[in-house]
Design a protein around this nucleic acid. Structure first.
Length: 132
DNA sequence: ACGCTGACTATTA
DNA sequence: CTAATAGCCAGCG
């Protein structure tokens, strides 16, 4: 089963969500890890990440985790995570709505009408690339 | 501890 | 084609 390695593996906890009182690894950290594994110029979907985490039935959690990432000490490339339609669904959640698109274009990704061009080609599947 | 919320996805009308 | 509905699960009040 291609599951993400335990981030903390027992000790290396990220303590990203709750700075006060280090909680153990939570669903979020898994999402952060995967998001950080996304190569530049590539994009992935919430569903793909969710599937890698095992919660493929609830991609909402992934996006929601991204929201927490916004508050975490870790820099998460949330702009590389979009919905399965290739649309920048979370652009409105960034510091500025245009930030997400600019970041993507900066990496060579064409974004038109809040949608990633050739999204299927740029699509990076964690379960496929991130084996074991 | 219960209930609401949510950056999604798939299905049905 | 677009619109609405249901299912999902983990955090937060």
């Amino acid at each position: 089963m291609p599951s993400i390695k335990r981030i903390n593996s027992g000790t290396g906890k990220l303590s990203a969500v709750k700075p006060s009182g280090n909680r153990e690894k939570s669903f979020f950290e898994l999402v952060f890890e995967v998001a950080l594994q996304i190569p530049e110029g590539r994009v992935t979907t919430y569903g793909a990440i969710a599937a890698c985490l095992g919660t493929k039935l609830s991609a909402r959690m992934v996006g929601w985790a991204m929201n927490s990432a916004h508050n975490s000490t870790i820099t998460v490339p949330a702009h590389r995570v979009i919905n399965r339609n290739g649309m920048l669904s979370g652009k409105h959640h960034f510091n500025t709505p245009d930030l997400m698109q600019e970041l993507l274009e900066k990496e060579g990704i064409k974004v038109v009408n809040d949608k990633v061009v050739d999204f299927k080609i740029l699509f990076w599947d964690p379960s496929q690339e991130l084996i074991d």
